[in-house]
């Protein structure tokens, strides 16, 4: 699905953001990328869809060599990658519906986009998605009238409108309060599983990463220092990623009973009886 090989990015200032990063995404799973600020998490995600041009290395989306594409080819490749941002990045003066439909911009012609006349299938899909993310009836609300959590829901719907082969998610919860963060992560993970889409999620909250991801990649100073399942994340590993610190309160233990992967939060409390192994996300909820 996605192959990243020896990806290196050196910024014009000489700062080396990524050095020789390689990994493979071959299952539709949620992969959390953790690491301290400045470790290169954002750069990594943006190099995949070339919002940042990598210095060297390879990015393969399916069979498409993203790095060698010309502008036209790159636009086509970007259609296959949905992106979700920390600051939501909605076009604020546009309505929720226009923002969601902007996920189809790569697919429709200029005049359709200009007159906002999207194919009825797209409109139907947009209404369904708005429903699914819990924003029923918000389609004519202007984006700048929404709260942070609502904006991120629109952001998620916009990314999924592309029916992407891959989701690139950059710090989706960093601007949200803890409760909304969990709701957003839960929604994101559910939708990714429903659509069978793998997701690369930058996140600096280790507990959230452990709770909601199937696999964790640890970045430190632009290099991958850990790549494994979330229950392999030990104090030792965290020290390798972030440096020396008392990690005993950060790591989720087995008796933590929020597995975060249930259908809805309240329902989950009842049926989500803690089972022996919660380190990995139960595939069952993916369908």
């Amino acid at each position: 699905m996605l192959t990243v090989e020896n990806l290196t990015k050196v910024y014009p200032t000489g700062a080396k953001a990524l050095s020789d990063v390689s990994f493979l995404v071959d299952e539709p799973k949620v992969i959390a990328i953790i690491g301290p600020s400045g470790a290169g998490k954002s750069t990594l995600i943006r190099c995949v869809n070339r919002l940042v041009e990598p210095t060297s290395g390879k990015v393969l989306l399916g069979d498409t060599d993203v790095i060698s594409l010309n502008r036209r080819g790159l636009r086509k490749a970007r259609r296959r990658m949905g992106m979700i941002f920390q600051e939501y990045n909605l076009v604020e003066r546009l309505t929720v519906m226009e923002n969601v439909l902007s996920g189809r911009l790569g697919f429709v012609g200029f005049w359709r986009a200009y007159r906002r006349k999207f194919p009825s299938d797209d409109v139907a899909a947009a209404f369904r998605l708005l429903d699914r993310v819990g924003l029923e009836g918000y389609h004519n609300t202007r984006a700048d009238a929404l709260s942070g959590g609502e904006r991120q829901r629109v952001g998620i719907a916009r990314a999924l409108m592309q029916a992407p082969d891959l989701l690139l998610v950059d710090e989706p919860t960093a601007s949200l309060d803890p409760k909304t963060s969990r709701q957003i992560m839960r929604l994101l993970v559910e939708l990714a599983h429903e659509a069978g889409t793998p997701a690369l999620v930058n996140i600096h909250d280790v507990a959230l990463a452990q709770t909601f991801s199937d696999r964790i990649i640890g970045l430190a100073a632009g290099e991958i220092v850990f790549d494994g399942s979330s229950d392999q994340l030990t104090a030792d590993v965290l020290t390798r990623i972030y440096g020396e610190e008392d990690w005993s309160t950060t790591i989720r233990t087995d008796d933590d009973n929020d597995n975060g992967m249930t259908e809805g939060s309240d329902e989950g409390k009842q049926k989500g009886r803690p089972e022996k192994d919660q380190g990995s996300i139960p595939e069952a909820s993916a369908g």
Partner: peptide, 17 residues
């Protein structure tokens, strides 16, 4: 805000769009 431009670019939209 550069983020909005970035987000619309990331959908695969061309410059006119």
């Amino acid at each position: 805000p550069p983020g909005q431009l970035e987000a619309v670019r990331a959908t695969g939209a061309s410059f006119p769009k």
